[in-house]
Design a protein around this nucleic acid. Structure first.
Length: 878
RNA sequence: GGGAGAUUAGCUCAGUUGGUUCAGAGCGUCUGCCUUACAAGCAGAGGGUCGGCGGUUCGAAUCCGUCAUCUCCCACCA
């Protein structure tokens, strides 16, 4: 086989991905094996791949490929999320380009456009994931808004409605008076805005609706809302206002009486300590209104203009009204003063209009019971969070869970299956036909035309919380048949979920709830939380900063394996990832190293009759033991989800131990052949290394594995078994480490004294050093002779553990220099000894510390003494 | 304002229940090498009183207190 001197990922990656697809290597069907299941966190259907996806899906793929090689029936279900808000705004923007407003074309036509857009651009991200090497079972690809899943979602709504957990309630929404729609909290941008703080006098009523000469002062930024005031509120602990208890005050200009109430919400040292309560136009005020049973008076219409309930300035825009009313208040003597004031004001992301808090009817799902069970699932350890710290966050939220507002004022999504009779009664049914017949039972005159379906759609999370269930069985999850579903009963619960901590409540918690409600079983065992990918300056990646690289360009430039490795290198669980292209370069370098290490071995001439050298024999034995120990470490890393540690462990094994030490030891001299035994061992080691790193670097490992031998069509490294750790001799590994230290020491002397690498040296090793490893030292450090007795001339010596290594260097050594070096080392050792002895002479230490610790101190003492003796012997020569 | 977490080498991070020869890794840095797999490489070297102060302990990077700085989540203040 001929191999290029450089690894070229672009030639290799598409070839093997097609090969895997053609042989359906990613496809899974239930069988007798243990399943290993992951469902993808579904990316937005119109999304494109960014670095966060790369991180998340690389981790998913590593876990899936590892499980597959562990012999499990691995299944990774891909799919996309309809993402109602994000997708709808994209479609709206696209229509806007054509000069079309969504209100003008109506719901049905809009949805046609939206589906068109989805068919055209949807799922691009799934294509992009293939470039990364993701081993998803593409036959199982799902979409949260596909008909079957939509049915499940609708049935789920009906289920909870019938259970009495879904109710209609009033809530403050962010109203965009220009777009005439409610927008989500995420779409509101808070900007510090200069405005004014108006101090207004409210005169106390005499009890008959007439003002007295006493008054209180409130401070407000929105004087145009005073007509909607329902009360004045003060803090009960605020003695300045106790005289107002039980009093009523009169709203300026309109003369309406409102009570003075007390509530802890009011800050005593903010403003004047008096708050005007306007339940219809402020979320907090609404809450206070509920507590004190205040009336709600809505004086602003959908366009942001005052309506007839305001009684004055009717029809005026809210900002125009503000200017006018200030003048009116000034004229009436109610305006005490005006302050400059800067406060955060919410603006619509889409229209930049100032958001108006507006009360509207919304649908809610009761969280109490669901949250309780979902909390227990994590507290009991049935679900593990990695890292564990997120349990606190989760607990805090679950103990304070508000009811879930599940309605959204959008069109792209699953429409709420609630139907209104003309008289306002509501029926909730799975489809319009059922709804009509249910409605007719209440009112026989109802027709399909007069029965009106709710305009809102369901929150996207109301479909994605079913994801781990519905990808396997899209029937309504509460359906009695669903437990018989072969896929669902085999694959559910899934094993691991990899996701970001930002959606722990939106998604993770709710999947746990749905699992508990419908399956009586958690949806996954482990949740691995990734960090957020940031640039190397720690900034979030964003389009506006332009600091987000295009993953596809990176894959093009460096190869998918390099990108995967680069991402994993810096990704300990739960920590933010500071991405830097140099990490991907490191991945590319590693690919080169792997590639070239095989070129070396593959280029050797093998002589089956040659006798294995002692060096090679020891090297093979050592690496075999090391491989076993390292595999054990790697398995442990995987068990603890320490993926970057697993990677680093293999990386060092491959590069340092295998390439730099092992291959250099067994490398035949120029022109010579390698013996058969060594060659076979080396090929086996290399094969194991490829398998170990395959889950992380699937492409290069497949390419090399395929090229190493004749493979049958359809064979793949993907289905090879993870190498297993055999027993190993820890003593041998330790002794080899000592040999390495000796070698590094001698090389260091060589570098320091500028002795040519090829010039052989002799050395004396004093102490108990394995005879077996002397050939290793000889070869790696270019030592041609081991001396038994101290040489007469000048030499340089150093200490490794309890061994003393001396290298005779007549002619290279400055005696004074060496002497002072030894003296310095002697001094250091004496200080060390003194420290150890101080500890040992401390009676409390000896009596309190465990015996093993004391014993170790004694060992330190005797070792130090031995070293001191050796150093003094060297010194005596000078 | 409430909550959570962090601070260890120039950078990014490990450091498992306090105790294994004066704290580890990767990258970067410095020095020397075109040594017949790889200069995207090889060999070698330097680099930290573990954020400050105080405490517990025979013993603290590790436990407690406190201060400082940073990050994230939630609420954003009439």
């Amino acid at each position: 086989m001929e191999s290029n001197s450089k690894y070229n990922p672009s030639e290799v990656e598409d070839k093997w991905y097609s090969y895997w697809l053609n042989h359906r290597c990613f496809h899974s069907e239930p069988d007798s094996r243990e399943p290993y299941t992951i469902v993808i966190p579904p990316p937005n259907v119109t999304g494109i791949l960014h670095m966060g996806h790369v991180l998340n899906n690389t981790l998913n793929d590593v876990l899936v490929r590892k499980a597959r090689m562990d012999g499990k029936n691995a299944c990774w279900v891909p799919g996309t999320d309809h993402a109602s808000i994000a997708t709808e705004s994209k479609v709206v923007a696209r229509l806007k380009e054509k000069g079309i407003k969504k209100e003008d074309i109506g719901r049905e036509k809009f949805l046609e456009y939206a589906w068109e857009w989805k068919e055209e651009h949807g799922g691009i991200i799934l294509q992009q994931l293939r470039k990364l090497g993701a081993s998803c079972d593409w036959d199982r690809t799902r979409f949260t808004m596909e008909p079957a899943l939509t049915e499940a979602v609708i049935s789920t709504f009906c289920h909870f409605y019938r259970k009495g957990w879904i109710y209609r309630g009033v809530r403050m929404v962010n109203w965009d008076p220009e777009a005439l729609t409610a927008v989500s909290d995420d779409e509101v941008i808070h900007k510090d805005t200069k405005s004014h703080f108006y101090h207004l006098r409210y005169y106390v009523s005499d009890g008959n609706g007439n003002p007295t000469d006493k008054y209180l002062v409130i401070a407000t930024t929105r004087p145009e809302t005073i007509m909607a005031d329902a009360a004045i509120c003060v803090n009960p602990a605020d003695e300045r206002h106790h005289w107002l208890r039980g009093k009523k005050v009169i709203i300026p200009l309109i003369g309406r009486e409102i009570p003075v109430i007390e509530d802890d919400y009011v800050e005593m040292d903010f403003g004047t300590g008096c708050l005007k309560v306007t339940p219809a136009h402020d979320a907090h005020d609404y809450e206070i209104g509920l507590r004190h049973n205040l009336p709600v008076l809505d004086i602003i219409d959908d366009h942001g203009c005052l309506n007839e309930k305001a009684t004055i300035l009717v029809g005026e825009d809210r900002f125009a009204a503000r200017k006018k009313i200030v003048r009116m208040l000034e004229e009436s003597g109610n305006l005490e003063k005006v302050e400059e004031y800067t406060s955060p004001v919410g603006y619509s992301e889409r229209t930049n209009a100032v958001i108006e808090p507006k009360l509207s009817a919304q649908w809610f799902l009761k969280m109490e019971d669901l949250a309780k069970e979902a909390l227990e699932a994590v507290e009991s350890g049935r679900i593990k969070f990695i890292p564990d710290k997120y349990r606190n966050t989760y607990r805090h939220w679950m103990e304070n869970a508000h009811d879930w507002c599940i309605s959204r004022q959008l069109w792209w999504g699953q429409r709420i299956p609630a139907y209104y009779l003309p008289d306002g009664q509501i029926v909730v049914e799975e489809n319009p036909e059922l709804a009509l017949s249910a409605a007719r039972k209440l009112d026989p005159t109802v027709t399909a035309e007069t029965l009106r379906q709710d305009d809102d759609v369901l929150d996207t999370w109301f479909s994605s919380w079913l994801w781990p269930i519905s990808v396997f069985d899209p029937k309504f999850p509460g359906h009695p048949e669903h437990k018989k579903n072969r896929d669902l009963s085999y694959y559910y619960p899934t094993n691991d979920l990899v996701t970001g901590p930002d959606i722990i409540f939106f998604w993770v918690a709710r999947m746990i709830m749905a699992g508990g409600e419908f399956m009586n079983e958690v949806p996954f065992r482990n949740v691995y939380f990734t960090g957020i990918v940031r640039d190397k300056l720690g900034r979030k990646m964003s389009k506006t900063l332009g600091n987000s690289p295009n993953p596809l360009e990176l894959i093009d430039k460096y190869g998918a394996d390099s990108v995967r490795l680069g991402m994993l290198l810096c990704s300990s669980a739960g920590n933010d990832i500071l991405y830097d292209e140099s990490q991907i370069e490191q991945g590319r370098n590693f690919c080169g190293k792997i590639w070239n290490s095989w070129r070396l071995v593959n280029g050797w001439r093998v002589d089956e009759n040659a006798v294995q050298s002692e060096t090679s024999r020891v090297a093979v034995k050592w690496f075999d033991n090391l491989l076993s120990r390292t595999i054990e470490t790697v398995e442990d890393n995987y068990r603890k989800f320490r993926i970057s540690d697993a990677l680093m462990t293999i990386y060092k094994l491959f590069w340092d131990d295998y390439c730099s030490w092992y291959l250099e030891l067994i490398k035949p001299a120029f022109g010579e052949a390698v013996d058969g035994a060594t060659y076979e061992a080396t090929v086996e080691f290399f094969t194991k290394l490829l398998k170990l790193i395959h889950p992380i670097m699937p492409f290069i490992t497949e390419e090399l594995w395929q090229s190493m031998a004749e493979r049958r069509d359809g064979e793949t490294i993907m289905f090879e078994r993870t190498p297993v750790a055999g027993p190993y001799d820890a003593g041998l590994l330790d002794e080899f480490d000592r040999a390495r230290e000796i070698i590094v020491g001698i090389r260091g002397i060589r570098a320091q004294k500028q002795i040519a690498p090829k010039q052989a040296l002799s050395a004396m090793i004093e102490g108990n050093f394995s005879e077996e490893l002397k050939p290793v030292v000889a070869k790696s450090a270019i030592v041609d002779k081991f001396l038994d007795a101290a040489p007469a001339g000048a030499s340089v010596s150093f200490i490794v553990g309890t061994l003393k290594v001396s290298v005779p260097l007549e002619g290279f050594v400055n005696a004074d220099e060496e002497k002072s070096k030894i003296e310095a080392e002697l001094e250091r050792q004496k200080n060390f000894l003194a420290g150890v002895r101080k500890k040992l002479s401390n009676e409390t230490f000896v009596s309190h510390a465990p015996a093993a610790v004391v014993e170790n101190e004694r060992k330190k003492e005797s070792d130090a003494l031995a070293r001191i003796e050796a150093l003094q012997a060297s010194l005596s020569k000078y």
